[in-house]
Simulated assay, not measured.
Amino acid sequence: MDFHVFDTYVKAKDGHTMHFDVITDKKETEKAISYAREWLKNIGEENVMVTAEECKFCHTQSVPDDMEIEIMTNGYFIAKMEGCPE
């Protein structure tokens, strides 16, 4: 199954940049933005700006089984790249 990757860069509350991918089975920018906001809220960054400027469709790919299970369960997977909490 193919999944859609949305490359996302946001400014954290303290001003540093967080880079992460939102990976989902829906190729819908608004849905990816919603997932990014949900994750950011979960890590205490609920007031960070996320729009189509910060969260852009990048490509489509297959994913490992554990990632696919998380996407099918939660709707998305966050692949932390740079500046994200552990």
Rank of each mutant, 00 (worst) to 15 (best):
D21R: 02
I69S: 02
Y9H: 13
I69G: 01
V5C: 01
K41M: 13
E46G: 14
D66N: 13
T17G: 03
T29V: 13
I43A: 03
K11T: 12
E68S: 12
C55G: 01
M49V: 13
R37L: 14
A32V: 11
E45H: 05
F57N: 10
G83W: 09
I69N: 02
N42V: 03
K41Y: 11
P85Q: 05
K31D: 00
P85Y: 08
V48D: 05
D7N: 08
F57W: 14
V48Y: 05
K41H: 12
M18C: 09
E38D: 09
K56N: 14
V5G: 04
G15S: 06
E53Y: 11
H19V: 07
A32L: 06
M72Q: 14
I78D: 03
E46F: 12
E30D: 15
F6G: 01
C55S: 10
M72E: 14
E70Y: 13
D65V: 14
K26Q: 08
P64A: 05
K31I: 06
D21P: 00
T8P: 09
C84W: 03
G15Q: 06
P64Q: 05
N42K: 15
F20P: 03
P85K: 05
V22W: 04
F77R: 04
I43F: 03
N74F: 02
F77P: 04
T8I: 11
E46T: 10
E54K: 00
D21L: 06
C58V: 12
I33K: 00
Y35M: 03
M67F: 05
I43H: 00
Y35W: 09
D66S: 12
V63S: 08
E82R: 11
M72R: 15
I71C: 04
A79R: 11
G15L: 07
V63H: 07
A12H: 03
M18V: 10
N42F: 03
S34V: 02
E70Q: 15
T73P: 03
E70F: 10
C84L: 09
H59Q: 14
D66Y: 15
D21Y: 06
V48T: 15
S62T: 01
D65K: 14
E38C: 06
G44K: 01
S34P: 05
C84D: 02
N74S: 11
A12W: 01
V5A: 00
P64E: 01
F77E: 04
K11P: 00
I43G: 05
D25K: 14
V10F: 15
P64M: 01
A52F: 11
I71M: 08
I23H: 00
Y35P: 00
E54R: 07
C55V: 04
F20Q: 01
V63C: 12
